[in-house]
């Protein structure tokens, strides 16, 4: 056992866990931050993605100790940070994923949304190709990625005050955005 001194979602925390634990295990099983998911055991799926000093990393491969001294942001951190900036409700990325139907089973999406959040922080107007590149470390098994990409593009469009592109099905269904 050892004590890890971690900065998670803005809080300085001390937490004791076995020395060989990964950051993912400490987040999930000691800090109760269960939003970071485990899908593949070893860095193949991206579900455990967290932001480390703003960059997406895989917490299942990151030894917990080596996260000391860095700012960790998990999916649970996005809404409070959004509120702290005066925002309402969930972070715009989270909200856009919900509005676009991108959350089917939702299991891969914390990682996906953090990859998207990191992209938009660095590049507020990514092209579709840049979105694909930024999400190329996150597997999703439900959506076919279409509504995920739509969600990121919705964030981009709304930030720019532009009308987002409507998907093909919306014309058929006479659907209006709720």
């Amino acid at each position: 056992m050892r004590v890890f001194r971690l900065n998670v979602n803005g809080d300085d925390l001390e937490v004791a866990a076995p020395a060989h634990w990964t950051l993912l295990e400490v987040l999930r099983y000691e800090l109760g931050l269960i939003g970071s998911k485990q899908g593949c055991d070893k860095g193949d799926c991206g579900a455990c993605t967290v932001l480390l000093d703003g960059s997406p990393v895989l917490s299942c491969l990151r030894l917990a100790a080596t996260a000391e001294g860095h700012a960790v942001v998990t999916i649970e951190g996005l809404m409070p940070m959004h509120k702290a900036r005066g925002g309402d409700g969930a972070d715009v990325v989270q909200d856009a994923f919900d509005r676009c139907g991108a959350l089917q089973c939702g299991f891969c999406q914390p990682g996906m949304m953090l990859s998207a959040r990191a992209l938009l922080n660095e590049n507020p107007k990514p092209t579709r190709g840049e979105i694909h590149d930024a999400l190329a470390g996150n597997l999703c098994r439900c959506t076919g990625y279409t509504q995920i990409v739509q969600a990121v593009e919705l964030c981009v469009a709304e930030a720019a005050g532009v009308e987002p592109a409507q998907p093909a099905w919306s014309a058929d269904a006479n659907g209006k955005k709720v």
Binding site: G35, I75, K176, V178
Partner: peptide, 25 residues
Amino acid sequence: IGKPHRKIDGLAKATGHAIYADDIQ
């Protein structure tokens, strides 16, 4: 019916609050 409503559990999933089996301790 017929409108693109949000899912009732969408935001819980989006914010990491939804509880899956391995989240039960």
